[in-house]
Amino acid sequence: MKKLVLFACCLVLFALPLSAQETASGDEKSTQKAGGVKSLAERIQRLEEAIGRDTESDKWYDRIQISGLIEVEAGYRKFEEKNDPAADTKESDVDLATVELVADAKIAKHVDGHVMFKYEEDEVFVDEGFIALVGTKSFPAYLIAGRQYLPFGYYDSHFVTDPNTLVLGETNQGAAVAGYRIGGERVDLSVGAFKGEIDKAGDDDAIDSFVAAITAHPLDFLMAGVSYTSNLASSDSLSAVIEENGTTELTDRVGGWSAFLTIEYLDRFKLIGEYVGALDDFEAGELYSPATLDKKRSPTAFNVELGAMIIEDLGLALRYGGSDDGAGVLPEKQYGAVLNWGIGSCNLAFEYLHDEFEDTGLDVEQEADTLTAQLAVAF
Results as ranks from 00 to 15, higher is better:
residue 304 V to K: 12
residue 292 T to P: 09
residue 282 F to V: 12
residue 325 D to T: 06
residue 325 D to W: 02
residue 330 L to M: 05
residue 295 K to P: 14
residue 278 A to H: 02
residue 306 L to A: 07
residue 295 K to E: 15
residue 315 G to E: 06
residue 289 S to N: 13
residue 297 R to M: 14
residue 311 I to Y: 09
residue 276 V to D: 10
residue 314 L to T: 07
residue 286 E to K: 00
residue 314 L to F: 08
residue 289 S to Q: 13
residue 301 A to R: 00
residue 310 I to V: 06
residue 329 V to T: 06
residue 310 I to P: 06
residue 288 Y to S: 13
residue 275 Y to N: 01
residue 305 E to W: 02
residue 288 Y to G: 13
residue 295 K to N: 15
residue 292 T to K: 14
residue 301 A to V: 05
residue 332 E to P: 02
residue 322 G to E: 07
residue 324 D to P: 03
residue 311 I to H: 05
residue 326 G to M: 15
residue 331 P to N: 05
residue 288 Y to R: 10
residue 316 L to P: 00
residue 327 A to L: 08
residue 303 N to I: 14
residue 304 V to D: 15
residue 307 G to W: 03
residue 295 K to I: 13
residue 305 E to I: 07
residue 314 L to H: 08
residue 319 R to W: 04
residue 291 A to Q: 14
residue 297 R to C: 13
residue 318 L to I: 00
residue 320 Y to S: 11
residue 307 G to M: 13
residue 294 D to Q: 14
residue 316 L to K: 01
residue 324 D to N: 11
residue 328 G to Q: 09
residue 306 L to Q: 04
residue 293 L to N: 11
residue 330 L to T: 10
residue 306 L to N: 04
residue 323 S to C: 05
residue 319 R to C: 03
residue 329 V to Y: 10
residue 300 T to E: 11
residue 297 R to N: 14
residue 326 G to L: 13
residue 327 A to N: 13
residue 295 K to L: 09
residue 288 Y to D: 12
residue 310 I to C: 14
residue 286 E to G: 05
residue 278 A to P: 02
residue 289 S to Y: 08
residue 312 E to Q: 14
residue 332 E to N: 15
residue 313 D to V: 09
residue 320 Y to Q: 09
residue 278 A to N: 02
residue 326 G to Y: 09
residue 326 G to V: 01
residue 298 S to L: 08
residue 308 A to E: 13
residue 318 L to T: 01
residue 286 E to V: 04
residue 278 A to M: 09
residue 329 V to I: 10
residue 278 A to C: 05
residue 320 Y to W: 03
residue 277 G to R: 03
residue 287 L to S: 10
residue 317 A to L: 04
residue 330 L to K: 01
residue 290 P to D: 08
residue 283 E to L: 04
residue 280 D to T: 04
residue 313 D to H: 10
residue 282 F to G: 09
residue 316 L to C: 04
residue 327 A to Y: 14
residue 280 D to C: 02
residue 323 S to D: 11
residue 303 N to T: 13
residue 305 E to G: 07
residue 279 L to P: 03
residue 324 D to C: 08
residue 321 G to V: 04
residue 313 D to E: 15
residue 320 Y to T: 07
residue 307 G to L: 03
residue 313 D to G: 11
residue 310 I to D: 14
residue 326 G to W: 07
residue 318 L to K: 01
residue 287 L to D: 00
residue 276 V to W: 01
residue 275 Y to Q: 14
residue 283 E to K: 05
residue 331 P to R: 09
residue 320 Y to I: 05
residue 307 G to C: 00
residue 301 A to E: 08
residue 301 A to Y: 07
residue 309 M to E: 15
residue 285 G to C: 02
residue 298 S to P: 05
residue 305 E to Y: 11
residue 301 A to S: 12
residue 287 L to C: 08
residue 302 F to M: 06
residue 306 L to T: 01
residue 275 Y to L: 05
residue 284 A to P: 06
residue 301 A to D: 11
residue 312 E to C: 11
